[in-house]
Design a binder for these strands. Structure first.
Length: 423
RNA sequence: GGAGACUUGUCCGAGUGGUUGAAGGAGCACGCCUGGAAAGUGUGUAUACCCGAAAGGGUAUCAAGGGUUCGAAUCCCUUAGUCUCCGCCA
């Protein structure tokens, strides 16, 4: 979340920036500032009273020690008088802090200066289009037909086992997933990312830490019995590894990668968007996360974008990079680059990666800090990106690489897949 | 899942109601010593919020939350976690 002191000191800037993100409830900003004023006033009064109680209590202790019972008893009645107002002030302070927090978590992150204005995906800025247009043969078909033809994924079986949107990968399909994950992880670890295999369910504090709560409450699967959320991305458990930690500056940047399934309810999706592997409730993804010095986060962002780009290029896919406009960005992000791969037979772009800088938005929630050279603790910047989401890469690969005699496996994946094609 | 023990600062560890944010040690930082290092030695070493230009001061925090009390790391309750034994089990 945004830092209170920053809001207090930059009220107009905050309102203006929220406008770029198309955030309507800018009145929240003034409510927060007013409430903060009250909070500080109440705390001052409360601290004052507490201080008196503490002093009096110490005196009682000393009097008791000296055996002056009567004087001690007199002090006690004095303290009792303070106690009532102390209790009231504490309650008031708690209420105010609760209200303040409730408002604060409803404010999204401020977009960085690079973020274009806009409301819808049409307003996103296309930074780059690259890669060769696949040349498909006359009878080329979308991936959902190829999947049937080569028996790679069984959606009906998933419906039987769980429900729609839970595909069952089979045979070469399962192996292709494994090959991709292995290859992506290999590239990430070679680039200095430490591999983690985190839990697939997280508690409320973790879901809150990365900003999924309260914003995306309805998008996550929830286990009420244990109060656990199924992770919508490994960003959640991986970034939360450092929740409530103070990192040594020398240990920055921290680079982590993880391969996990991701679970998303995707309520409200329908039609061609959810056909085949385009949008499912459970999918696998390899993620990269960085925790960096605040001065280095844009450098790190560029490096992550370049890294993901290299990955896609190595697969030989046609792709484009978008800088998302304010209205299309995520709640917690300051800037986001989306990667889309071209899906030759569907003739559409599929989002396969999203690389974001969260600046201090997540670290402020999670209290991830480092000690600077003056010994003062400062919030770090957090970033993450997909590298990559598997199903859409698979969809694109199948469609673009189909021939009349089978599907060609990209050269870099062949060692992991153990064959040059699917026939 | 049942029974018991436990949860203190970066770490180890003392502390069963009274100036305890917390002894002692280790680690770390800086200084002295040294040709350099080790050893030795001195000083410092939590976080957040509030007041203050600063120096400094106040408040809170000994797993988390609540309670008893003038006063709680210390007593009581709830929750979470760790360990041991039993049960179950990939």
């Amino acid at each position: 979340m945004l830092q209170l002191a920053f809001i207090r000191q930059n009220r107009d800037l905050v309102v203006e920036r929220l406008g770029v993100k198309n955030f309507k409830e800018t009145n929240l900003v003034d409510e927060i500032i007013a409430l903060d004023e009250q909070r500080r006033k109440t705390q001052q009064e409360n601290d004052e009273i507490s201080s008196r109680i503490n002093m009096a209590s110490k005196e009682i202790g000393m009097l008791m020690g000296k055996g002056e019972k009567d004087a001690a008893e007199q002090k006690k009645t004095e303290v009792t008088a303070y106690k009532e107002s102390s209790k009231q002030l504490t309650d008031k302070l708690n209420t105010i802090e609760q209200q303040l927090n409730d408002l604060l978590v409803r404010l999204p992150n401020l977009p960085s200066a690079l973020v274009p204005k806009g409301l819808t995906p049409e307003d996103n800025l296309i930074i780059k289009v690259s890669g060769d247009e696949p040349v498909l043969h006359a009878n080329a078909v979308p991936h959902w037909d190829l999947i049937k033809q080569y028996d790679l994924v069984n959606f009906e079986l998933g419906v039987k086992l769980t429900g729609s949107g839970f595909p069952v990968y089979k045979g070469k399909g399962a192996k292709l997933q494994r090959a991709m994950a292995q290859y992506f992880l290999e590239l990430n670890t070679n680039a200095g990312y430490t591999e983690y295999l985190p839990p697939y369910m997280v508690n409320e504090a973790s879901a809150f830490g990365t900003g999924q709560l309260p914003d995306k409450e309805g998008q996550m699967y929830y286990m009420p019995e244990d109060k656990f959320y199924m992770i919508p991305t490994s960003e959640v458990p991986v970034t939360n590894i450092y929740r409530d930690e103070i990192i040594k500056e020398i240990d920055l940047p921290i680079k982590m990668t993880a391969y996990t399934p991701c679970f998303r309810r995707e309520a409200g999706s329908f039609g061609a968007d959810v056909r085949g592997l385009n949008r499912v409730h459970q999918f696998d993804k390899v993620e990269i996360v960085q925790i960096v010095h605040p001065d280095k986060s844009y450098e790190a962002l560029d490096a992550m974008v370049a890294h993901v780009e290299k990955l896609i290029q190595s697969l030989g896919l046609k792709y484009r990079i978008l800088r998302l406009c304010g209205g299309d960005m995520g709640f917690a992000s300051a800037i986001t680059y989306d990667f889309e791969v071209w899906s030759g037979a569907q003739k559409k772009w599929l989002e396969c990666s999203s690389v974001s800088n969260f600046e201090t938005y997540q670290s402020n929630r999670m209290k991830i800090r480092f000690k600077d050279e003056k010994g003062k603790s400062q919030l770090v910047h957090t970033l993450n990106g997909s590298s990559l989401a598997l199903p859409r890469i698979m969809a694109s690969l199948l469609e673009n690489n189909q021939t009349e005699n089978g599907i060609i496996i990209p050269f870099v994946l062949q060692p992991y897949f153990g064959a040059v094609s699917i026939n």
